[in-house]
Design a protein around this nucleic acid. Structure first.
Lengths: 337, 337
DNA sequence: CTGAAAGCGCTAACAA
DNA sequence: TTGTTAGCGCTTTCAG
């Protein structure tokens, strides 16, 4: 089945076709000057030989890898998957590929990953969030390619960012909850410190509650991020036990919120009549479950698309490239007033 | 901020350290012969210079990319994400990286992707399923690297496979449903032809029903794969309208099953008393929702891990490497007897 | 439109 | 343990 001969190179294709390797090279570049018939003959010969273009060599010579490096906290998260999808689809139009790594919500792991990814000579690097180890940050500052921080608005951006205020988005939900009459509001999130976006959502909750003169101390920590549905359910049980008179809860994600919702159903607590629930992220589950979930749409896919366009603009040398601030949208559904 | 000087190379590090480039190269390979102090001095100088190892060049010279190419139908699917996670984590132990592409459940797109990925000279390629375009198959047959088909047991494997029988797994569920007394059983899946794993599940359903002498014609097509929760809900509405006396339904995935479950709740149809529901894939939603979902665990993460180990074995030249047949596990929960 | 020469940055292979 | 030489497969550059 698999022969042990060395795979054919452009030189082989050139020999078969009776042209120079340079001409073969041109045949493989869509926009290069070469007669139509010659190109067709060359491509046909290449296909017959089983020749596969070697981008490894091409990249070295031209000093362009065609890669954009991307780090996300978790591969198994619909929000980040949407962002990667937006990035990937937009970059594909220019034949660029994504080199993906995930950090498990851990900046140490992110540092290791950044170093590993940079060795592949990406033409840009996209990271999630604005928190990094000192060395990770230094690596990003030193490298001579566009760096884009996403899903956040960093206090001190390394280079560019495409994101939104996590604290601000939660504040909008608190404001809405207070406006419609809830007062005793709690927050379910992960343990502090690891997931920075989650922490900022908690901070946004506390700040907004205080701004309304309300008690901001009803905080339930549900475990290490990311918070699963199960952990959301457990946190809800703890919440009801600890603060039985709570009227509404804001969860760090729709997944936690859905878990909380199922726990209410198990306990016979009517939602939203007795207990209102809000989530974050506009996951599919939130528009299908009963009752549907009030949530915040952070436009995950658009973050990816805008990031990709920012990168392409920079690589094209367009001046005046602006960072992007996304405005998350509050979606009020049936799990709350 | 970003200087326009060319980034430093090994030659620069060598100059600064007063050694030859070859010695610098050795300092970056963990297992090579070089005095400890010298290595440390070199690595320190490299860090100071902001030198980043160039795997592009290394790969070309050594003819080893360190990549494993992987195609999956969708990036936004917890099952495939788990498989990729298993692959990625297992390969990371050997410093290999994954080069990921997704096909949108489309073999044309898969063909395009395979061609693109092979240009990066991966050391192995993993594809999902055993159905490909003719040219896609030819590319995989011709290339001189391990090819692993997953999530399926192909009738004619190209090279290796790590998978399970989708038809057989659904047959197990039908057998169970019949054993506990259901007779009028339906199947909700995607439109035929695109998602081959889904088609095989439907085929397994029909064959099993016929084996029991039961009517296998209650098939609801829910749209293009992948079937969303929403489409599962719509399909359930159609099912109840079309075949009102149905007792149980098997859905092509847990997501569709969950949608079906919510539709029952909306319609006031009690599950499992009036209507039993089974899913596929053991997604998190199925163990949290109310009632919990009867499903099939296909061991997605293990598929990835076993695939990675298979690849490493082959690359290590271990003889007698065997393909892997996973045995999916039926999990009976509260959405059925 | 086509070709020849040179070299991208690293490491295999050999020599010391 | 270290250095020298050559070359991985392609494309930049320049000449025709």
């Amino acid at each position: 089945m698999s022969k042990n001969r060395k795979p054919p190179t452009m030189a082989d294709v050139a020999r078969v076709t009776g042209v120079s390797p340079m001409t073969v090279s041109r045949a493989f570049k869509a926009d290069s000057l070469i007669s139509k018939e010659r190109r067709e003959a060359i491509l046909q010969a290449a296909e017959d030989l089983g020749y596969v273009f070697d981008s490894t060599a091409s990249n070295l010579r031209s000093q362009k890898s065609g890669f954009v490096a991307v780090t996300i906290p978790s591969i198994n998260n619909a929000n980040f998957a949407d962002t990667v999808g937006g990035l990937s689809d937009t970059l594909a139009a220019r034949d660029m590929q994504i080199l993906l790594g995930y950090t498990n919500y851990n900046t140490q792991e992110e540092e290791r990953l950044i170093e590993q990814l940079l060795r592949r000579k990406p033409q840009a690097i996209v990271v999630t969030g604005g928190k990094h180890t000192d060395r990770g940050r230094r690596l990003l500052e030193t490298i001579n390619i566009p760096v884009i921080e996403t899903w956040d608005i960093p206090a001190e951006p390394i280079n560019h960012y495409v994101g939104f205020s996590n604290a601000g988005a939660v504040r909008d939900m608190v404001d809405h909850f207070v406006r419609v009459g809830y007062r005793r509001i709690a927050f379910i999130g992960g343990d502090v410190g690891r997931d920075t976006r989650g922490s900022e959502r908690r901070i946004g909750f506390a700040a907004a509650m205080q701004a309304h003169g309300l008690d901001a101390s009803r905080l339930i920590a549900a475990g290490l991020p990311p918070i699963s549905m199960r952990e959301g359910a457990n946190a809800m049980a703890k919440l009801i036990e600890t603060y039985p008179d709570t009227e509404a809860v804001i969860c760090v994600s729709d997944l936690a919120a859905y878990g909380a919702l199922t726990e209410c159903r198990r306990l016979g607590v009517p939602v939203p009549e007795r207990f209102a629930i809000g989530g974050f992220g506009n996951y599919e589950i939130g528009e299908v479950c009963v009752p549907t979930l009030t949530t915040i749409n952070a436009f995950a896919r658009e973050i990816g698309e805008r990031t990709a366009r920012l990168i392409l603009d920079i690589l094209d040398g367009n001046e005046g490239v602006d960072d992007v601030r996304i405005s998350p949208e509050l979606i009020v559904r049936n799990s709350s007033r």
